[in-house]
Simulated assay, not measured.
Amino acid sequence: MKAYWQLTLAQLRIFARNRQVLFFTLLFPIILMLALGSFLGNSGGTSISIAVIDHDESSASKALLSNFQKNEAIQLDQSNSVDEALDELKTDDYQVVMEIPKGYGKHLQTHAEKSKALDLPVYYNETNASASQLGLTVVTSAVDQVSKNIEDYSPVVAVQPKGVRALDIGYIDFLVPGIVAMMIMNNNMNGVAGQISAWRERGILRRMQGTRLKASTFIAAQITARVLLNGLQAILVLVVASLLFNVQVNGSWLALLTFVVLGTLAFMAIGFIIAGLAKNPESAGPIAAFASFPMLFLGGVFFSINSMPEYLQPFVHVLPISHLSTALRETMNVGTPFLGLWPHWLTLVAWLAVAFTIASRTFKWE
Protein backbone atom coordinates (compact mmCIF):
# COMPACT_ATOMS: atom_id res chain seq x y z
CA MET A 1 0.00 0.00 0.00
CA LYS A 2 2.88 2.38 0.74
CA ALA A 3 4.33 1.82 -2.73
CA TYR A 4 0.91 2.49 -4.25
CA TRP A 5 0.57 5.90 -2.57
CA GLN A 6 4.16 6.83 -3.36
CA LEU A 7 3.64 6.04 -7.05
CA THR A 8 0.36 7.96 -7.09
CA LEU A 9 1.96 11.05 -5.55
CA ALA A 10 4.96 10.71 -7.87
CA GLN A 11 2.66 10.68 -10.91
CA LEU A 12 0.82 13.76 -9.66
CA ARG A 13 4.15 15.54 -9.11
CA ILE A 14 5.14 14.72 -12.68
CA PHE A 15 1.96 16.41 -13.90
CA ALA A 16 2.53 19.43 -11.64
CA ARG A 17 6.17 19.99 -12.67
CA ASN A 18 5.55 19.77 -16.40
CA ARG A 19 4.13 23.10 -17.54
CA GLN A 20 3.19 21.75 -20.96
CA VAL A 21 1.17 18.99 -19.33
CA LEU A 22 -0.59 21.52 -17.11
CA PHE A 23 -1.39 23.71 -20.10
CA PHE A 24 -2.75 21.03 -22.37
CA THR A 25 -4.58 19.08 -19.68
CA LEU A 26 -6.02 21.94 -17.64
CA LEU A 27 -6.03 25.15 -19.67
CA PHE A 28 -6.41 24.03 -23.28
CA PRO A 29 -9.97 22.60 -22.87
CA ILE A 30 -11.04 25.78 -21.08
CA ILE A 31 -9.51 28.00 -23.78
CA LEU A 32 -11.24 25.93 -26.46
CA MET A 33 -14.56 26.15 -24.60
CA LEU A 34 -14.22 29.92 -24.20
CA ALA A 35 -13.35 30.41 -27.88
CA LEU A 36 -16.23 28.32 -29.23
CA GLY A 37 -18.65 29.38 -26.53
CA SER A 38 -18.02 33.10 -27.13
CA PHE A 39 -18.75 32.81 -30.85
CA LEU A 40 -21.37 30.08 -30.90
CA GLY A 41 -22.56 29.71 -27.34
CA ASN A 42 -25.71 31.78 -27.77
CA SER A 43 -26.82 29.94 -30.87
CA GLY A 44 -29.34 27.14 -30.71
CA GLY A 45 -32.71 28.48 -31.81
CA THR A 46 -33.69 30.73 -28.88
CA SER A 47 -35.84 32.92 -31.18
CA ILE A 48 -38.85 31.11 -32.62
CA SER A 49 -40.65 32.39 -35.72
CA ILE A 50 -44.26 31.24 -36.02
CA ALA A 51 -46.72 31.98 -38.81
CA VAL A 52 -50.43 31.71 -38.00
CA ILE A 53 -53.32 31.56 -40.48
CA ASP A 54 -56.47 32.47 -38.57
CA HIS A 55 -59.50 31.22 -40.54
CA ASP A 56 -61.83 31.73 -37.57
CA GLU A 57 -61.01 35.35 -36.61
CA SER A 58 -63.01 35.04 -33.42
CA SER A 59 -62.34 36.39 -29.95
CA ALA A 60 -61.21 32.90 -28.95
CA SER A 61 -58.63 32.70 -31.76
CA LYS A 62 -57.34 36.16 -30.88
CA ALA A 63 -56.97 35.04 -27.26
CA LEU A 64 -54.87 32.08 -28.46
CA LEU A 65 -52.62 34.42 -30.44
CA SER A 66 -52.16 36.61 -27.38
CA ASN A 67 -50.71 33.61 -25.53
CA PHE A 68 -47.95 33.47 -28.15
CA GLN A 69 -47.37 37.23 -28.06
CA LYS A 70 -46.72 37.12 -24.31
CA ASN A 71 -43.62 35.03 -24.95
CA GLU A 72 -40.73 37.37 -25.76
CA ALA A 73 -38.81 34.58 -27.49
CA ILE A 74 -41.54 34.18 -30.12
CA GLN A 75 -41.81 36.20 -33.29
CA LEU A 76 -45.44 35.86 -34.38
CA ASP A 77 -46.57 36.68 -37.91
CA GLN A 78 -50.10 36.38 -39.25
CA SER A 79 -50.51 35.20 -42.82
CA ASN A 80 -53.48 35.02 -45.17
CA SER A 81 -52.22 32.12 -47.28
CA VAL A 82 -51.23 28.65 -46.12
CA ASP A 83 -49.26 27.99 -49.30
CA GLU A 84 -47.18 31.16 -48.94
CA ALA A 85 -46.46 30.41 -45.27
CA LEU A 86 -45.39 26.85 -46.16
CA ASP A 87 -43.05 28.16 -48.85
CA GLU A 88 -41.39 30.37 -46.26
CA LEU A 89 -41.28 27.43 -43.85
CA LYS A 90 -39.28 25.45 -46.41
CA THR A 91 -36.69 28.24 -46.58
CA ASP A 92 -36.41 28.40 -42.75
CA ASP A 93 -38.10 31.80 -42.48
CA TYR A 94 -40.46 30.13 -40.02
CA GLN A 95 -39.96 27.25 -37.62
CA VAL A 96 -43.67 26.48 -37.35
CA VAL A 97 -46.81 27.27 -39.35
CA MET A 98 -50.19 26.83 -37.63
CA GLU A 99 -53.76 27.02 -38.90
CA ILE A 100 -56.69 28.00 -36.72
CA PRO A 101 -59.67 26.36 -38.47
CA LYS A 102 -63.07 27.86 -38.99
CA GLY A 103 -65.32 27.10 -36.04
CA TYR A 104 -62.52 27.15 -33.46
CA GLY A 105 -64.32 29.63 -31.19
CA LYS A 106 -67.63 27.83 -31.46
CA HIS A 107 -65.94 24.55 -30.54
CA LEU A 108 -64.58 26.06 -27.33
CA GLN A 109 -68.05 27.28 -26.34
CA THR A 110 -69.63 23.86 -26.86
CA HIS A 111 -66.70 21.70 -25.75
CA ALA A 112 -68.73 19.99 -23.02
CA GLU A 113 -70.93 18.37 -25.64
CA LYS A 114 -68.00 17.06 -27.65
CA SER A 115 -65.95 13.96 -26.88
CA LYS A 116 -63.11 14.68 -29.27
CA ALA A 117 -60.60 17.51 -29.14
CA LEU A 118 -60.27 19.86 -32.09
CA ASP A 119 -57.04 19.32 -34.00
CA LEU A 120 -55.05 22.36 -35.09
CA PRO A 121 -52.91 21.71 -38.19
CA VAL A 122 -49.31 22.54 -37.34
CA TYR A 123 -46.56 22.28 -39.95
CA TYR A 124 -42.82 22.11 -39.36
CA ASN A 125 -39.70 21.58 -41.44
CA GLU A 126 -38.43 18.02 -40.95
CA THR A 127 -34.98 18.95 -42.26
CA ASN A 128 -34.47 21.43 -39.39
CA ALA A 129 -35.47 19.25 -36.47
CA SER A 130 -33.84 21.22 -33.67
CA ALA A 131 -35.56 24.57 -34.30
CA SER A 132 -38.80 22.93 -35.44
CA GLN A 133 -39.18 20.78 -32.35
CA LEU A 134 -38.52 23.76 -30.11
CA GLY A 135 -41.27 25.62 -31.96
CA LEU A 136 -43.64 22.67 -31.59
CA THR A 137 -42.99 22.61 -27.85
CA VAL A 138 -43.94 26.29 -27.57
CA VAL A 139 -47.08 25.85 -29.68
CA THR A 140 -48.19 22.79 -27.72
CA SER A 141 -47.71 24.60 -24.41
CA ALA A 142 -49.74 27.62 -25.55
CA VAL A 143 -52.55 25.49 -26.97
CA ASP A 144 -52.69 23.34 -23.85
CA GLN A 145 -53.09 26.50 -21.77
CA VAL A 146 -56.37 27.16 -23.60
CA SER A 147 -57.83 23.93 -22.25
CA LYS A 148 -56.45 24.57 -18.77
CA ASN A 149 -58.15 27.97 -18.63
CA ILE A 150 -61.55 26.36 -19.14
CA GLU A 151 -63.46 25.33 -16.05
CA ASP A 152 -63.55 21.59 -15.36
CA TYR A 153 -60.43 21.12 -17.47
CA SER A 154 -60.49 18.50 -20.20
CA PRO A 155 -58.47 18.56 -23.43
CA VAL A 156 -60.64 20.35 -25.97
CA VAL A 157 -57.86 21.49 -28.32
CA ALA A 158 -54.80 19.38 -29.17
CA VAL A 159 -51.76 19.59 -31.40
CA GLN A 160 -50.82 16.38 -33.20
CA PRO A 161 -47.37 16.92 -34.75
CA LYS A 162 -45.18 14.25 -36.30
CA GLY A 163 -41.45 14.28 -35.70
CA VAL A 164 -38.77 13.73 -33.15
CA ARG A 165 -38.14 15.52 -29.89
CA ALA A 166 -35.31 18.05 -29.64
CA LEU A 167 -33.81 19.72 -26.56
CA ASP A 168 -34.18 23.41 -25.83
CA ILE A 169 -30.48 24.06 -25.27
CA GLY A 170 -27.87 26.38 -26.68
CA TYR A 171 -24.70 25.25 -28.37
CA ILE A 172 -22.62 25.95 -25.26
CA ASP A 173 -24.79 23.48 -23.30
CA PHE A 174 -24.11 20.93 -26.02
CA LEU A 175 -20.42 21.79 -26.21
CA VAL A 176 -19.32 21.61 -22.56
CA PRO A 177 -20.00 17.86 -22.03
CA GLY A 178 -18.20 17.20 -25.32
CA ILE A 179 -15.18 19.19 -24.11
CA VAL A 180 -15.10 17.09 -20.92
CA ALA A 181 -15.27 13.87 -22.98
CA MET A 182 -12.50 15.15 -25.28
CA MET A 183 -10.14 15.93 -22.43
CA ILE A 184 -10.75 12.51 -20.85
CA MET A 185 -9.86 10.83 -24.14
CA ASN A 186 -6.75 12.93 -24.75
CA ASN A 187 -5.44 12.78 -21.17
CA ASN A 188 -5.67 9.03 -20.97
CA MET A 189 -5.40 7.46 -24.41
CA ASN A 190 -2.80 9.86 -25.80
CA GLY A 191 -1.16 10.62 -22.44
CA VAL A 192 -0.76 7.03 -21.29
CA ALA A 193 0.54 5.86 -24.67
CA GLY A 194 3.21 8.55 -24.79
CA GLN A 195 4.27 8.32 -21.16
CA ILE A 196 4.52 4.53 -20.94
CA SER A 197 6.43 4.37 -24.23
CA ALA A 198 8.89 6.99 -22.98
CA TRP A 199 9.39 5.21 -19.68
CA ARG A 200 10.00 1.94 -21.47
CA GLU A 201 12.61 3.49 -23.77
CA ARG A 202 14.40 5.17 -20.84
CA GLY A 203 14.48 1.89 -18.90
CA ILE A 204 12.25 3.13 -16.08
CA LEU A 205 9.81 0.25 -16.48
CA ARG A 206 12.64 -2.27 -16.55
CA ARG A 207 13.99 -0.94 -13.25
CA MET A 208 10.50 -1.09 -11.73
CA GLN A 209 10.17 -4.68 -12.87
CA GLY A 210 13.44 -5.51 -11.09
CA THR A 211 12.00 -4.41 -7.73
CA ARG A 212 9.29 -6.04 -5.66
CA LEU A 213 6.76 -3.71 -7.24
CA LYS A 214 3.79 -5.56 -8.67
CA ALA A 215 2.37 -4.62 -12.03
CA SER A 216 -1.08 -4.30 -10.44
CA THR A 217 0.27 -1.73 -7.96
CA PHE A 218 1.91 0.26 -10.75
CA ILE A 219 -1.28 0.28 -12.86
CA ALA A 220 -3.48 1.10 -9.84
CA ALA A 221 -1.32 4.13 -9.02
CA GLN A 222 -1.54 5.31 -12.64
CA ILE A 223 -5.32 4.93 -12.57
CA THR A 224 -5.70 6.80 -9.27
CA ALA A 225 -3.53 9.72 -10.35
CA ARG A 226 -5.32 10.12 -13.67
CA VAL A 227 -8.78 9.76 -12.14
CA LEU A 228 -7.91 12.57 -9.69
CA LEU A 229 -6.54 14.70 -12.51
CA ASN A 230 -9.57 14.15 -14.75
CA GLY A 231 -11.99 14.76 -11.90
CA LEU A 232 -10.25 18.04 -11.06
CA GLN A 233 -10.22 19.13 -14.68
CA ALA A 234 -13.89 18.22 -15.22
CA ILE A 235 -14.92 20.23 -12.14
CA LEU A 236 -12.77 23.18 -13.29
CA VAL A 237 -14.31 23.17 -16.78
CA LEU A 238 -17.84 22.97 -15.36
CA VAL A 239 -17.21 25.78 -12.86
CA VAL A 240 -15.87 28.08 -15.60
CA ALA A 241 -18.81 27.15 -17.87
CA SER A 242 -21.27 27.88 -15.07
CA LEU A 243 -19.74 31.25 -14.19
CA LEU A 244 -19.31 32.53 -17.75
CA PHE A 245 -22.07 30.80 -19.71
CA ASN A 246 -24.56 29.76 -17.00
CA VAL A 247 -24.24 26.09 -17.93
CA GLN A 248 -25.92 23.95 -15.28
CA VAL A 249 -25.68 20.30 -14.23
CA ASN A 250 -29.34 19.28 -14.13
CA GLY A 251 -28.63 15.68 -13.19
CA SER A 252 -26.67 13.94 -10.47
CA TRP A 253 -23.09 15.00 -9.83
CA LEU A 254 -22.39 11.47 -8.64
CA ALA A 255 -23.57 10.07 -11.97
CA LEU A 256 -21.49 12.67 -13.81
CA LEU A 257 -18.32 11.79 -11.90
CA THR A 258 -19.03 8.08 -12.34
CA PHE A 259 -18.94 8.54 -16.10
CA VAL A 260 -15.72 10.53 -15.75
CA VAL A 261 -14.18 7.54 -13.94
CA LEU A 262 -15.54 5.02 -16.45
CA GLY A 263 -14.26 7.09 -19.36
CA THR A 264 -10.87 7.43 -17.70
CA LEU A 265 -10.56 3.67 -17.20
CA ALA A 266 -11.72 2.80 -20.72
CA PHE A 267 -9.37 5.22 -22.47
CA MET A 268 -6.48 4.34 -20.17
CA ALA A 269 -6.85 0.70 -21.21
CA ILE A 270 -6.79 1.77 -24.87
CA GLY A 271 -3.71 3.88 -24.13
CA PHE A 272 -1.93 0.85 -22.67
CA ILE A 273 -2.72 -1.09 -25.87
CA ILE A 274 -1.14 1.66 -27.98
CA ALA A 275 1.87 1.78 -25.64
CA GLY A 276 2.28 -1.97 -26.07
CA LEU A 277 2.09 -1.80 -29.85
CA ALA A 278 4.35 1.24 -30.26
CA LYS A 279 8.06 0.51 -30.63
CA ASN A 280 9.10 3.92 -29.26
CA PRO A 281 7.60 7.26 -28.11
CA GLU A 282 7.94 8.70 -31.61
CA SER A 283 5.56 6.09 -32.99
CA ALA A 284 3.20 6.14 -29.99
CA GLY A 285 2.14 9.73 -30.70
CA PRO A 286 1.07 9.19 -34.33
CA ILE A 287 -0.72 5.93 -33.46
CA ALA A 288 -2.65 7.65 -30.66
CA ALA A 289 -3.46 10.60 -32.93
CA PHE A 290 -4.61 8.24 -35.67
CA ALA A 291 -7.07 6.68 -33.22
CA SER A 292 -8.21 9.84 -31.41
CA PHE A 293 -8.50 12.38 -34.24
CA PRO A 294 -11.44 10.69 -36.04
CA MET A 295 -13.24 10.29 -32.71
CA LEU A 296 -13.20 14.06 -32.17
CA PHE A 297 -15.51 14.47 -35.15
CA LEU A 298 -17.40 11.18 -35.04
CA GLY A 299 -17.95 10.94 -31.29
CA GLY A 300 -20.36 13.82 -30.76
CA VAL A 301 -17.81 16.21 -29.25
CA PHE A 302 -18.52 19.23 -31.47
CA PHE A 303 -21.41 18.01 -33.64
CA SER A 304 -24.54 16.02 -32.98
CA ILE A 305 -24.23 12.30 -33.70
CA ASN A 306 -27.75 12.24 -35.15
CA SER A 307 -26.77 14.72 -37.87
CA MET A 308 -24.13 12.38 -39.31
CA PRO A 309 -24.77 10.27 -42.44
CA GLU A 310 -26.73 7.08 -41.90
CA TYR A 311 -23.96 4.87 -43.24
CA LEU A 312 -21.70 6.13 -40.41
CA GLN A 313 -24.24 5.61 -37.62
CA PRO A 314 -23.43 1.92 -36.87
CA PHE A 315 -19.72 2.75 -36.59
CA VAL A 316 -20.30 5.92 -34.57
CA HIS A 317 -22.49 4.16 -32.00
CA VAL A 318 -19.67 1.72 -31.22
CA LEU A 319 -17.08 4.38 -30.36
CA PRO A 320 -16.48 4.82 -26.62
CA ILE A 321 -16.34 8.60 -26.85
CA SER A 322 -19.80 8.75 -28.45
CA HIS A 323 -21.27 6.96 -25.43
CA LEU A 324 -19.22 9.05 -23.00
CA SER A 325 -20.19 12.40 -24.58
CA THR A 326 -23.86 11.37 -24.87
CA ALA A 327 -23.98 10.17 -21.26
CA LEU A 328 -22.38 13.37 -19.95
CA ARG A 329 -24.73 15.46 -22.11
CA GLU A 330 -27.83 13.55 -20.99
CA THR A 331 -26.78 13.89 -17.34
CA MET A 332 -26.00 17.61 -17.55
CA ASN A 333 -28.64 18.90 -19.96
CA VAL A 334 -31.58 16.58 -19.36
CA GLY A 335 -30.96 15.21 -15.88
CA THR A 336 -31.35 11.60 -16.94
CA PRO A 337 -30.66 9.28 -13.97
CA PHE A 338 -27.69 6.93 -14.06
CA LEU A 339 -29.79 3.78 -14.44
CA GLY A 340 -31.58 5.36 -17.39
CA LEU A 341 -28.23 5.63 -19.18
CA TRP A 342 -27.47 1.90 -18.93
CA PRO A 343 -26.60 1.45 -22.65
CA HIS A 344 -23.80 4.01 -22.29
CA TRP A 345 -22.17 2.83 -19.06
CA LEU A 346 -22.58 -0.78 -20.15
CA THR A 347 -20.78 -0.01 -23.41
CA LEU A 348 -17.98 1.79 -21.57
CA VAL A 349 -17.61 -1.16 -19.21
CA ALA A 350 -17.44 -3.50 -22.22
CA TRP A 351 -14.72 -1.33 -23.81
CA LEU A 352 -12.83 -1.36 -20.51
CA ALA A 353 -13.02 -5.15 -20.19
CA VAL A 354 -12.00 -5.87 -23.79
CA ALA A 355 -9.27 -3.21 -23.91
CA PHE A 356 -7.84 -4.27 -20.54
CA THR A 357 -7.68 -7.90 -21.71
CA ILE A 358 -5.83 -6.90 -24.88
CA ALA A 359 -3.57 -4.48 -22.97
CA SER A 360 -2.55 -7.19 -20.51
CA ARG A 361 -1.37 -9.32 -23.43
CA THR A 362 0.41 -6.56 -25.33
CA PHE A 363 2.00 -4.69 -22.40
CA LYS A 364 5.79 -4.97 -22.23
CA TRP A 365 8.10 -3.85 -19.41
CA GLU A 366 11.01 -3.41 -21.82
Rank of each mutant, 00 (worst) to 15 (best):
F174G: 01
V237F: 00
A35C: 07
I273E: 07
W5Q: 09
M295C: 06
I273Y: 08
G163F: 05
R212L: 14
L352F: 15
S242L: 03
L236F: 14
G191T: 04
A166N: 12
P337G: 09
E113H: 15
H111V: 10
T357P: 07
P309E: 01
P161R: 08
V97E: 06
F218R: 09
N190C: 05
S197V: 01
E99G: 01
V176F: 02
R207M: 06
N280S: 13
G335H: 08
V143W: 08
A51D: 01
V52H: 09
L328C: 08
I74R: 00
P314G: 04
L238A: 05
N42M: 04
F315G: 04
A73T: 12
V143M: 05
L228D: 07
G194M: 15
K90E: 12
L232S: 13
L265F: 06
H344F: 10
G210E: 11
K162T: 13
P343N: 05
K62Y: 13
V349E: 07
S115Q: 12
R206P: 04
T362Y: 09
V122N: 01
F315E: 02
L319G: 04
L236K: 02
L89H: 07
E201D: 10
K62D: 10
I100G: 03
T91F: 11
M308F: 06
P343L: 02
G135T: 00
F68I: 00
F290D: 02
N71F: 09
L108P: 09
P161I: 06
S49Q: 13
A63V: 03
A288M: 02
L22D: 06
V247T: 01
L262T: 08
S292L: 10
R206N: 10
A142W: 01
H55E: 11
L352A: 08
L312D: 05
R202M: 11
Q160N: 12
P286M: 00
N67L: 15
L243F: 10
S322V: 01
L36M: 14
T264I: 03
P29R: 02
G178K: 11
P121Q: 06
L312R: 05
G135I: 00
A288Y: 02
G105L: 03
L232G: 15
F363M: 11
S322F: 05
A10Q: 11
T91E: 14
S197I: 00
M268D: 06
S216W: 11
G103Q: 07
I223P: 04
F68Q: 00
H323L: 05
Q133D: 11
V239W: 05
F15H: 12
L76F: 08
N188W: 08
V301G: 01
H317P: 05
V122Y: 01
A353Y: 02
V249C: 03
A51E: 02
L244W: 15
L254V: 13
G194E: 09
N306L: 14
V176D: 00
K162Y: 14
P29A: 03
S59R: 13
A51I: 01
V239L: 15
A234Y: 02
S61V: 07
A198F: 07
F303T: 14
D119S: 10
A241H: 01
E57F: 10
L213M: 13
P286A: 01
